[in-house]
Design a protein around this nucleic acid. Structure first.
Lengths: 179, 179
DNA sequence: TAGTACATGTAACAGGTTACATGATTGA
DNA sequence: TCAATCATGTAACCTGTTACATGTACTA
């Protein structure tokens, strides 16, 4: 259900093709949602059937036609109603925590390299978020409301990545005592 | 895929019925995985078919029979092999961040109550984790390796909840300036 | 007598992943 | 010439949710 609304949210900002929406999820929007291109195309089809979006076919020379989707009045009102409804917290599902839980099945150095890789991945994510923040929100004090709210979603991503990095350091410190 | 391994991890610790595994996910194990009872029963059936677990029927007076599952040698070696494989980081999917992203569609007080509720939920989660930590790991310095690794999974949950609480405060401070 | 805990499941559907499929253009 | 980018999709499968179904025992 949420994916539809995530797509509507992006389309509201800027009418786009499925391909462009997929790019968005790979970029800064990735700090709050993620979907594969197959899922996006299927979901856009459903939104079209529901009549929440309009489609405009844009022929292109030498490339397949682009289907540009945009949110119509019905879609906008559905998105607004959904936004007003409360949101539950998301349960945690973390493969790496299962692996740590049964960590004594493997050698400590195996866990160590898992956690080191995780730390690196979150470092890279944090760096990406920081680049985006520096580029789009260099002076967060004086942003229009809309932009400030978006800046806050990025802040969430940054805090998230930072908290993982700190935890990895805590785990690595412990694992180091096992050698 | 991960759910099977999460179940194996719990069963390795202590042979259990589907009902008991579901309880575990609702409790402290919830800091790294979550599944509904329907999913658990289906997955246990698959593990049985694969021959990774053994089942023992325990008749009970006045209650339906219990099916106690335990990990056998094959299951154990599969879990070990899986644990040794690297784990990817989990993409973020947060409904509340979509709502914040399109937050200007609703009145600021609506966002405020969403975030306040979120803050409360994470406070409650943190309190639950702290209770578990105090009960099971009162002296984390001197734990056997197995227990210390479990303690670290709890620490991850605590850091996670704390980071959400801090972020909620940041958002609430901003929303307060809008009135 | 109503609700909760115990204990298991089926069926239908929705959400998400993996593999396959097409085909032009651009840059290394 | 090989890979990447642009651009869309189908089919099969696996994962996860919701609703339904059964039945006892205990507690408020």
């Amino acid at each position: 259900m949420s994916l539809s609304y995530a797509l509507l949210a992006l389309l509201l900002d800027c009418p786009s093709s499925g391909y462009e929406l997929n790019k968005a999820f790979e970029g800064s929007i990735g700090c709050f949602w993620k979907a594969s291109h197959q899922q996006i195309y299927r979901e856009l089809g459903k939104l079209e059937e529901l009549g929440w979006v309009n489609v405009q076919l844009v022929p292109q020379a030498g490339k397949p036609d682009k289907k540009i989707y945009s949110v119509n009045e019905l879609g906008r009102s559905q998105l607004t109603a959904w936004t007003a409804r409360p949101a539950d917290i998301t349960p945690i599902k973390e493969e790496i925590l299962i692996k740590l839980f049964v960590g004594t099945l493997v050698e400590p150095h195996v866990l160590q390299s898992h956690i080191q890789q995780h730390r690196q991945d979150y470092e890279a994510l944090l760096a990406a978020y920081e680049t985006i923040a520096a580029k789009w929100f260099p002076a967060p004090q004086n942003l229009p409301v809309e932009d400030h709210l978006r800046y806050l979603t990025l802040r969430c991503g940054m805090r998230y990545a930072t908290s993982w990095i700190d935890w990895c350091d805590e785990v690595l410190a412990y694992l180091a005592t096992l050698n």
